[in-house]
Design a protein around this nucleic acid. Sequence first.
DNA 1: TTTGCATGCAAAG
DNA 2: TTTGCCTGCAAAC
Length: 323
Amino acid sequence: MPEGHSVHRIARQFALHFVGKPVAVSSPQGRFAEGARMLDGHVMTDARAVGKQMFLEFEHGLWLRVHLGIYGAWDFAGDITADATIASANGRMGQTNQRGTVVGAFEDSLSSIGAPRRTRLRMAEQEKLEAPLESFPPDPVGAVRVRLLTDVTCADLRGPTACDVLGPEEVQAVIDKLGPDPLVDSPKKAEERFTETVLRKPTPIALLLMDQSVVSGIGNVYRAELLFRARLNPHTPGRDVPEELVRALWKDWSKLLKIGVRTGQMLTMDGLRGKAYEAALASRADRHWVYHRTGLPCRVCGTPILMEEIGGRKLYWCPVCQA
DNA sequence: TTTGCATGCAAAG
DNA sequence: TTTGCCTGCAAAC
């Protein structure tokens, strides 16, 4: 499932290609027929992401709220903007640049692409360019809960965990329940709110990072990686984490999220050099410090990485580096 | 070719 | 606490 970075990227597609245009809304699958009728034909006026939730506003004041859950996805077809994805599709991702950083490599790729083009783009846990369009709009594939259609762009939603039409007050109520998002809230206020909340709780930090009312947008990958990067034991109660480390966690999340939004990838080993970062770009298996590396040697100390379930989700960590 | 898991959440029980 | 979502992918046959 997409973590916060991809939801922000999806919202950006809607901001670029749907906002300001009348949108035909339908539910090919049928399960969203009533909601579709409430929105059909209206001009989209806003597209925003908060954490893992996305909100699309229409001119008559109603909003479409979508949460993708673990395997929801948006498929775009027609005129859309495919930036970092192009790089990943044509193998230019591994190019080095003079600075020799992972992010720098992506930035080089981004500088020459990013214009809208007529294509198909799948935005889910990973982004993927698909075979070019044969006709427009394309026939719905699978269980399309919602189809949003302008004269030149089509967006199909499948498998969401949440998809509703809400009024402005309801949207605000949903957002109010969410913890701070580094790309939505002012940096100072957000850091204060996060820090204050964490330092008040006896709950293990590994659970707090996944709690969307504490901080928005972190999922299972970013959770494991943030804890490793902080060299923090996942079982540490929030209130026992040194305040400076809590603040550092927030700043690190903010940094990783921005990298994720810019590149479309969950790059958590930024700063790697040479062959190591090329491997990280080429293979998901080489992309992370601890995520999905059960039993493999820690990249820092060589100790086998542990996996345990906490809160029903798998947690990966190094018992020595994160003692 | 089939099976099982997955980068979540909400509703049902 | 369990189930639904009902997809995509990789590992296992």
